[in-house]
Design a protein around this nucleic acid. Structure first.
Lengths: 128, 128
DNA sequence: CACGGCTTTTACGTAAAAGTCAATTTGGCA
DNA sequence: TGCCAAATTGACTTTTACGTAAAAGCCGTG
């Protein structure tokens, strides 16, 4: 496990630009350490980037991703805070379950479209 | 099954604005018929809106949604077109499967966060 | 027939998420 | 130690997906 990654290493690994990484930092999603002015990304930062990109692919806004990331952190000490966090987690879970339903529905429709294409090809005497 | 829906009926049903529906029309996603200048949405238009919103929730851009919608249409007659369509469908399916992995991973992390909150609450003597 | 309510078109506005560009600064190594 | 590729910062631009406001058309009701 590497100690640190440079910004360009991460841009290459994840296929994003330095601007994007700095943007996420400005937005408070990641906090790489600095040697002088240059950013050094720890494994934990790298993992965060991975999570951010996952959220992005799922269509979450940066604000929503921030909320999700916050619940990954160590749980707070106070009961009220803990309960609040639990309700936030439940909210995100519901959101994701809705997305999962949307996803399965869309996959089904695509399968139907695929099948009718294959059938049509068969009618034309083409073997898939 | 109703013949036609007015624009406001659909906005109420789906919780979107008239601007949004007209925008999707400008973008070529839907094509309601007209009585004079007013739009009349058929059940098929209504179903399209449902599919559009599903795509939107999954984080697809309007351009991507348009591509998905196009493969739902009746399959074309020509072999080359059919094969092209099949490859487009396969592409979308891969995309959706990636999203599904992202989704399951995120749900797992949320479950872990949830568990550690519950544990912490238990330590504090709170029964969930 | 005037009115309120719904609808239309046109046009400009805007927030989010970066991309791009220019002007430094720096740090590694020959 | 001197230099050049890489990194940083700040400002401006772009794209997407609508929001919003203005001005006007249709239509059933009192």
């Amino acid at each position: 496990m590497r100690d640190y990654y440079s910004i360009t290493e991460l841009t290459r690994e994840f296929g994003i630009s330095t601007r994007t990484l700095r943007f996420y930092e400005d937005e408070g999603l990641i906090n790489p350490v600095r040697r002088g002015r240059t950013r050094l990304y720890r494994p934990s930062d790298r993992h965060l980037v991975r999570q951010i990109l996952r959220g992005r692919r799922l269509g979450f806004s940066v604000a929503e991703i921030r909320e999700i990331i916050e619940v990954y952190k160590a749980p707070p000490g106070e009961v009220g805070q803990l309960k609040l966090m639990l309700s936030k987690i439940a909210e995100k879970q519901q959101d994701l379950r809705q997305k999962r339903r949307d996803l399965e529905d869309t996959l089904e429709e695509l399968a139907r479209a695929e099948e009718s294409c294959v059938e049509r090809l068969a009618e034309l005497g083409v073997t898939t």
